[in-house]
Amino acid sequence: MNLMTGIAAVLLAVLATVRPALAGQDEVDPLASPRWADMRYLFPEGATLRFDPRVRVLAPAVAENPLQVPLTVDASELGPVSEVLVFADFNPIVEVMRFFPEAAPAWLGFRIKLQQSTPVRAAARTADGVWHVGGTWVTTVGGGCTVPSAKAGSPDWQARLNQVSGRQWNRGAQADRIRLRIEHPMDTGLVAGIPAFHLDQVELLDAAGQRLMRLQLHEPVSENPVFTLRRGAVAGPVEVRGYDNNGNAFHARIAP
């Protein structure tokens, strides 16, 4: 904490001249998490962190099903964002995923597994290298990371591994939206006898090869992940491709 306060003080002194409006925001964890000091190690040494209400993490305050806790991360108000790190302080696997918005705005909906009640946070890195941190507490029953995936009871999951379904919306209030689902057990490796087996990289590109977003997924992302994103100015079909940590690759096309 002292180290952090020290860094913060130096930082504030520097920033005071450049962006005085932000002064003071990085001093106290608004979620009052006892693990916040440890969370700093997720970031490169010397990285500048700032609590920023413009990074919104939407989640139910009480999540009954710890295997499918919905999160919607919105850092689009920051302007261009190069990377968003999603993490949960008290999860046995803290890091949930990173996403790298390119043509798409820094906005992503998905679901995660939580082992116990915890802050769930998103840290968005802007071009100036500053990580803007937002988050919320989620109270949950627990056991989300040490429960076998449903595929354990389903004999034909291998035939459907990495199959993608999806849809784009062009009209109505959600006119720039893409939703997709990828069949994958997303095993955490924390269940005895079931090794970690999860999607690793997923990327979405338009027909011209321009990348909308890249996702780097970790074990806490829910089984059969569903992603909701905004495609920004991109139009036409969207290619989805990726692979899991066992090297199983896939690629699919979502019609406009």
């Binding site: 139910p60 999540a63 009954e64 099903n65 499918q68 919905p70 199959q163 993608v164 379904s165 999806g166 849809r167 939703r179 997709l180 689902r181 059969n224 569903v226 989805v240 699919a252 096309r253 979502i254 019609a255």
Partner: peptide, 21 residues
């Protein structure tokens, strides 16, 4: 209602997502 969304929405949304190839 919120609990039911958690239980039932994954099945409902799966019905409206189309296979991508």
């Amino acid at each position: 209602y919120r609990r039911s969304v958690g239980h039932l929405f994954p099945g409902v949304e799966q019905e409206i997502l189309e296979p991508a190839r």
